[in-house]
């Protein structure tokens, strides 16, 4: 079984549009959206959920105002500024700001009144769905939850189980922007990171950081330059970077409104009319399949 994750560092370079096209072109695969914070792949693939599961991770502190004496020990020990005093009718008590609580349990352990409950935290929902391109695993984290990578790891595990059960040999993942925990989690056991960039200062800067991360974890990198014709100088810089670092350069894709038009029609760009863009995408996919062997 092979695993590919499409990432970019910088957001908005075309990860999801390309993943959708690859999902159209690939055979025998499980599609997986690992951007659990702001997922978009479902907008193109219109998944119909077969199974819906709640995702719980970690805990959150909740102070019982009836037991709280307002001593403030919890607030003074909390390193996340997650506890603030509030006034009740007759006295002051402490209250947890849920979006700031890290679930560390320090307040729970040190409350002299044992007034702090510590239930599991309901962080989001994940789905096993069916799409016109095959099975899909995806999720939605609730707003403000810690994007810890645990949900990403869970989705990857579910995708592997599904691939094994249905005898599929590829897991195709749309990744998250950035270089933090969710991206690190998405690289685990990945055979190839397809990095989508654009020839702009931000695109190049973020490419260098995200490929640095891939090198750090010894994940193989292949690069696609999207909108390559916007700025030939930066495109040349990216070409040179790939040559120097030994990253495979999969394609130079032109800046084309066809990507947005396909998005508006809820299609992968390769489902529409042939163009220089779609030819480039097909060639890139062909090269990826050769890489994976």
């Amino acid at each position: 079984m092979r695993e590919i994750v499409v990432i970019s560092g910088k957001g908005g370079t075309g990860k999801t549009s390309l993943t959708a096209a690859f999902a159209h072109l690939a055979e025998n695969k499980v599609i997986c959206d690992l951007d659990v914070d702001a997922p978009d792949l479902h907008l193109l693939l219109a998944p119909g959920p077969l199974r819906t599961e709640q995702f719980f991770s970690g805990h959150e502190a909740i102070i019982n105002p009836d037991l709280c004496t307002g001593c403030g020990i919890c607030a003074s020990m909390c390193r996340y500024e997650a506890i603030a005093p509030v006034s009740l009718a007759d006295r002051n008590v402490c209250q947890v700001v849920p979006t700031r609580c890290e679930g560390c349990s320090v307040c729970v352990a040190f409350c002299p009144e044992q007034a702090i409950a510590f239930p599991s935290r309901h962080c989001g929902t994940w789905y096993h769905s069916d799409t016109r391109f095959g099975p899909m695993i995806h999720a939605q984290l609730f707003p403000g939850q810690e994007n810890s990578g645990l949900l990403v790891s869970r989705l990857k595990k579910e995708a592997r189980n599904l691939a094994q059960a249905q005898n599929l040999d590829l897991i195709l993942c749309d990744g998250a922007p950035g270089i933090g925990c969710p991206v690190i989690a998405s690289l685990s056991q990945t055979d190839l990171a397809v990095v989508v960039t654009e020839p702009t200062p931000s695109g190049v800067h973020d490419l260098e950081r995200v490929t640095g991360l891939c090198d750090h974890f010894r994940t193989k990198v292949a690069v696609i330059i999207n909108k390559y014709d916007l700025n030939p100088e930066h495109t040349a810089r990216i070409d040179a970077l790939c040559a120097q670092k030994g990253y495979a350069l999969l394609a130079h894709l032109p800046h084309d409104e066809q990507v947005t038009q396909a998005m508006v029609q809820r299609q992968a760009v390769t489902e529409g009319p042939d163009s220089a863009l779609t030819t480039g995408v097909r060639q890139a996919w062909h090269t990826i399949t050769q890489f994976l062997g």
Binding site: G11, D37, A38, T99, L141, P143, G144, Q145, E146, G178
Partner: peptide, 11 residues
């Protein structure tokens, strides 16, 4: 701000 709507963006 960072993209998204999880903890870093909310913060």
């Amino acid at each position: 701000a960072p993209p998204g709507v999880s903890c870093p963006a909310m913060t």
